[in-house]
Design a protein around this nucleic acid. Structure first.
Lengths: 153, 153
DNA sequence: CTCTGTGCAAACACTTTGCAGCTAA
DNA sequence: TTAGCTGCAAAGTGTTTGCACAGAG
């Protein structure tokens, strides 16, 4: 991603902040910039390290909170399932998972067409794929009528 | 799941242990039984609470280690991404994720047919789906030639 | 001026590690 | 008998919370 693209994205982001009623702080812009400037999927710690090069006084907490805020306004998202305690699944039959982003519950569903996903050759050749699944996120029934704030996940 | 089914699964599990060269301890059987006896996707803590009803002396560490062992021999698996530090993604363009279960890296790929997954009506009606994606797990190129043991994830 | 956001510090939750004694095979 | 397993304790890592001050609007 070149500098011009980044500038454009940052400007979009600032617009999105205003629309969401968020203040535009240098920390926010710096975190956002660091986030889109990498192909990796950084942890808060990764971003922290990066941003500190330009802004040595920023705190890890701010980075953490800012990233969560970005996810809330849709300027970023959280990689599937990460950041939650490890959950185990003893059901070995074909099924798929739906994660409620509010209450954190994982709910099984089974849609047979999803059992045999065809991967493109470039993937099969490059990675040793041990598992392939369709994964959904959203709000479960009980959580749909409640505010998205004070969510626990 | 009724008692007979559970008994059968436990027997299969014991067989699988022997084949994998694992010892058959009462703790292992108890953890496994608790795991398959629930539709939820329990954390180690959940299983711990459950197993203690029958086996009050078991420790949380044992539960934790046992569950990881079950995942290693394929008698259980770990719900997508859980148990890892939260990772953020600033790429809002369509793409999918591949998680290397050894080094923990998340690698993007993009296969356009996966961009528009058709969900069955029963799902759309029940949940508010905010995200739907294909998710892969396995070994990335650099990790394919190394042992699966002393993995960090 | 006001109210949100930041930095700091402490608390908390989850996971991992090392080790001594125990036990299944 | 012995290699692998368990329980305990401690440390490590990641995340959350409360609060006082600073800064954006």
């Amino acid at each position: 991603m070149d500098n011009e693209q980044i500038t454009i994205k940052v400007r979009d982001f600032e617009k999105r902040c205003r629309e969401s009623g968020l203040k535009l702080t240098p920390q926010r812009s710096a975190v956002y910039k660091a986030l889109i400037n990498t192909d990796m999927h950084p942890t808060a710690e990764d971003i922290y390290r990066e941003v500190r090069k330009e802004m040595p006084a920023i705190s890890l907490d701010t980075v953490n909170r800012t990233l969560l805020t970005l996810a809330e306004i849709g300027a970023a998202f959280i990689v599937e399932g990460t950041g939650q305690p490890r959950r185990f699944d003893g059901g070995l039959e074909d099924h798929q998972h739906f994660l409620c982003i509010k209450c954190g519950k994982v709910i099984d569903f089974h849609h047979p067409p999803f059992d045999n996903i065809q991967l493109p050759n470039e993937i099969e050749g490059k990675f040793k794929v041990l598992r392939k699944t369709v994964y959904l996120e959203g709000l479960c029934e009980p959580c749909q009528n409640q505010s998205l704030h004070n969510q626990t996940v």
